[in-house]
């Protein structure tokens, strides 16, 4: 069943702040095998002009995807999550995420399209810091594959 087009443009309430931990950044960098000192060494990060260690570019996805869960789980929208795959992912950064940031995410349904029986939904997550400054925008395209013919 096609998703309701009237949900396009719907914005969900901002999430509670997520505090970016220095050790969480280190854990993530280790998990992707990335030894860039800007992620683990405050002095190295400062030498690059950052006020503290920064997070790898895709780190913020854990926060924005959790926020997108509001959309995915919205019973009124009725997305069948068991059929959902991650289609595209984009980030546009105002500045890198860094340790100590307290980040909130505001999710908006950017578009809903039906393509060859698949439902394609774009969710935009706007990430702001404690001062209300924009940090990064994440665009997540989810594809709900067509249900199998009975």
């Amino acid at each position: 069943m096609a998703l309701d087009q009237s949900f396009v443009g719907r914005t969900y309430p901002p999430t509670d702040p997520y505090e970016v931990g220095r050790e969480k950044i280190r854990e993530f960098a280790e998990a992707i095998g990335d030894t860039n000192p800007a992620y683990i060494d405050t002095e190295a990060a400062k030498a690059l002009g950052h006020s503290d260690v920064i997070a790898p570019p895709t780190f913020v996805f854990a926060i924005t995807f959790k926020a997108a869960g509001q959309v995915v789980a919205d019973p009124q929208l009725g997305l069948d999550y068991s059929r959902v795959v991650h289609g595209d992912q984009k980030f546009a950064y105002r500045r890198p995420v860094r340790a100590g940031d307290r980040l909130t995410v505001t999710s908006t349904i950017e578009s809903i399209r039906s393509m060859a029986g698949n439902e394609v939904i774009d969710i935009r997550g706007e990430v702001h810091d404690e001062a209300g400054e924009h940090v990064v925008t994440a665009i997540t395209k989810l594809v709900a594959r067509r249900a199998e013919e009975a």
Binding site: N36, L48, G49, H50, P57, V85, G87, F91, A92, R95
Partner: peptide
């Protein structure tokens, strides 16, 4: 890594 302004992929 802070020099990355945009990054996008399709899976």
């Amino acid at each position: 890594p802070g020099a990355v302004a945009e990054y996008g992929v399709r899976f």
